[in-house]
Design a binder for these strands. Structure first.
Lengths: 225, 225
DNA sequence: CGGGATATTGACTCTTATCAATGCCCGTGG
DNA sequence: CCACGGGCATTGATAAGAGTCAATATCCCG
């Protein structure tokens, strides 16, 4: 049995609530969106909570995850600046979202987006496209979790992060090993060992735990793709 | 999942199909949707193929999967009668779809939705809802693949199938062990052993390999949920 | 009936998890 | 400015769960 991915203290930290957690009714007449800030590990929304808003990342990195009663956690996605998250089919969030690092987002009222008829049609189409893209990413991730080994998973992860950072060969990982593990369906120890193995192979170099140099992207692609 | 919330009439308007195009194997070229039949294991569409249509299952069961070059396969979903599949963000399918058993589907032209300006926002909205529901299912499946053990996976699978068959305690599995394994990220031998274990526990009874009696749903829920 | 596909069961291996010790980095306070 | 401490990461030893390989068993479908 896979045991707890979160220690008691981690849970406390993860569920710490930052001051202005709830998007309040738009105060400005413009009602474009509501800017909000979250501290590291602060909760943006929780599983089971009422879902009235969609969010766009302005800065920082957000993780979306689901938790089992015994603490096992699966992160379904990390969201970077420019990306949107928080879409729900009904009124409740079925996953939770937290700030990996200090985060700024803009919250848009879901009702405002979908409620009116004509003016929002193009925006709804755009949301549809975004959601289909999210679905595709998630299906790719199913393949990773269901059928790839630890080394392949980490290689794919590094390539994905690199691609989303503009393809740079040096990348700064915002998240700790623990989060990477919960994204890749591994333990943090295994993630650490796979870093060591990629290092050994000469595929990467670690300037620090968080700063990774991708030396041989072809080798990583051979593993991860 | 993905039970269609679309009224027939909406579909008819949105997906008017011109005859004589892909999808192949059309049996009747109605103006509305294209009825098609597929034999067991026949391909409905392939990964990388041009995606011009969305599909609705009329009868049978469809599996959607992705394949690695070395043959490892991950099934992301089984689709039952009434459900829709085949949504794509761009012009290519990023997974393939095959008939698990003899299948009848109706294909609708996708262009009707995103292309024209006339479509009502409420209609696009319904498509969005379907896609978001698909995303939710896929994210739940991530948790299963990333963090649950073999017994839990099979228990959840059986409950899911039961729920989609209307909650009956006796269920007829359309797919072989191999497909279940590729859906659950296991080998067929492990699936077989977990069936034996659930049997041993008294949670299920196998009338045959494909016909399963769910004797103790509570026990299954304790495992799978 | 017979035969191929499908499923079960067994013996053994291997990858990854678990448990545990140590190391490292960085911010804080003396 | 250095020492301390806490969070984070690495590394090691061992265990467990699932995979692999292989031998039957069973079920359809002709």
């Amino acid at each position: 049995m896979l045991t707890s991915a979160l220690a008691e203290t981690d849970l406390h930290r993860a569920f710490a609530v930052s001051p202005q957690r709830k998007p309040r009714a738009a105060e400005s007449a413009g009602q474009i969106g509501l800017a909000m800030s979250f501290a590291r590990n602060a909760e943006i929304y929780a599983e089971g909570e009422t879902a009235g808003y969609v969010y766009k990342v302005i800065s920082g990195v957000v993780r979306v995850s689901k938790l089992l009663p015994d603490g096992r956690r699966q992160i379904s996605a990390f969201h970077m600046p420019g990306e949107m998250f928080g879409f729900e089919a009904n009124e409740l969030h079925h996953a939770s979202a937290e700030a990996v690092v200090p985060v700024k987002v803009v919250a848009y009222k879901w009702e405002g987006v979908l409620g009116t008829e004509k003016q929002s049609a193009s925006f709804v189409r755009e949301l549809l496209t975004l959601t289909v893209l999210g679905l595709r990413h998630t299906q790719d991730h199913l393949l990773l979790l269901g059928r790839k080994n630890a080394l392949e998973r980490l290689a794919e992860f590094l390539l994905e992060m690199s691609a989303r950072m503009g393809g740079s060969a040096v990348l700064e990982l915002a998240m700790p090993r623990h989060d990477i593990a919960d994204y890749l369906g591994l333990t943090l120890e295994t993630v650490s060992r796979m870093f060591a193995e990629l290092k050994e192979m000469g595929a990467i170099r670690l300037e620090s735990a968080r700063r990774v140099h991708l030396l041989d992207k072809a080798a990583l692609k051979a593993l991860g793709a």
